[in-house]
Computed example of a mutant assay.
Amino acid sequence: MEVSDIIKPENQVFCKTQLLTDTTLSYCPGCGHGTAHSITMEVIEEMGIVQDTIGVAPVGCSVLAYDFMNIDMTQAAHGRAPAVATAISRVWPNKYVFTYQGDGDLAAIGTAETIHACNRGENIVIIFVNNGIYGMTGGQMAPTTLEGMMSSTSPYGRDVKTMGMPIKMTELVANLPGVYYATRQAVHTHKHVRKAKKAIKKAFENTRLNNGISFIEIVSNCNSGWKMTPNESNIWMEENMFPYFPLGDIKVNGKLK
């Protein structure tokens, strides 16, 4: 075979975890949700906990996560995923229970459920995708929208005098005693994907040890909502999102970094 033949699509082998279905992802091209889905399922498969894992999908861009994740899933009302996960975990304490939520869901309508589940130290994993905007419903301003950032409901940019500062959920919940592990990661490069996957694996291992809440924030882009190409949105994310939402561990083994 010639070298030129190797790169032909028909000669390439694309490997994906068996826990991702063959359903076409509904996410916009370039969105980080697909990668976050993939590494979460890879961790579950590699840990051998497929039959013991239950995911909770709320409302937002991830509302159809059960179509893509080939594991036991249930749906929650908007913002209520931590409450549903709490019930499942208490009924089946030996299960690995996780939520998969966006910033509009977790940090807005679901603030109460998030805070109180974290404060109680429920033995669940929360995966929180933060793209600084309401992606599914038209690009409205979210609690995580940056100062000066334009959205459909802040067309002149977020004015912190009237709209408040963007909320840093991971720092907020890290200060609660029930949170055992809190970290912020990204998935836009190979290096960041590896770190994010390692963090998700650590979170599920914490569940195995009954350590309480593990809170994994993934800062992602929203090229559609931000009105950019995927590459432009990744650059904008690095230059604007990361300075305000710095990546890395915030709380490990119950201790703030």
Rank of each mutant, 00 (worst) to 15 (best):
S4N: 07
S4A: 09
I7K: 08
P9C: 00
V13Q: 08
V13F: 05
F14P: 06
L19Q: 02
L20M: 04
S26G: 15
G30K: 01
G32P: 08
T35R: 14
A36N: 14
H37Q: 09
H37S: 03
S38T: 03
T40W: 04
E45K: 07
E45Q: 13
E45Y: 09
E46S: 08
M47G: 10
M47P: 01
Q51D: 14
D52T: 13
D52I: 06
T53H: 00
V56I: 12
V59C: 11
V59T: 11
C61G: 03
V63P: 01
V63Q: 08
L64P: 03
L64A: 11
A65M: 06
D67L: 05
F68R: 03
M69Y: 08
I71V: 11
M73E: 10
T74R: 15
Q75V: 13
Q75I: 14
R80T: 00
R80H: 04
A81M: 14
A83L: 10
A85G: 11
T86I: 05
W92Q: 12
K95W: 00
F98Q: 04
Q101S: 07
D103Q: 04
D103I: 03
D103K: 00
G104R: 00
L106N: 09
L106Y: 01
G110R: 06
E113L: 02
T114M: 14
T114Y: 08
I115Y: 12
A117K: 07
G121S: 04
G121M: 04
E122T: 00
I124R: 01
V125S: 01
I127Y: 02
N130S: 01
I133Y: 02
G135N: 02
G135E: 01
M136W: 07
G139T: 03
A142P: 02
P143R: 10
T144M: 10
E147W: 02
G148C: 14
G148K: 03
M149L: 11
S151F: 07
S152M: 08
S152K: 14
Y156P: 03
D159Q: 11
D159I: 07
M163H: 10
M163W: 07
M165V: 09
M165L: 15
P166I: 12
E171A: 12
E171M: 11
V173M: 08
V173L: 08
V173D: 03
L176W: 06
G178V: 03
Y180L: 00
Y181G: 06
A182P: 09
Q185I: 06
H188D: 09
H190R: 14
H192W: 09
H192I: 05
V193R: 02
R194Q: 09
K195F: 04
A196N: 11
A196F: 09
K198G: 02
A199I: 09
A199P: 12
I200A: 09
A203T: 13
T207N: 05
I213M: 10
F215M: 12
E217G: 05
E217Q: 14
S220H: 05
S224D: 10
S224C: 06
G225I: 00
W226Y: 15
K227E: 13
K227R: 15
M228R: 12
M228Y: 11
P230V: 08
E232K: 11
E232R: 09
S233W: 12
M237I: 06
M237W: 07
E238S: 11
E238I: 15
M241T: 01
M241R: 04
F242Y: 15
Y244R: 10
Y244S: 01
P246M: 12
P246V: 15
L247R: 14
L247F: 10
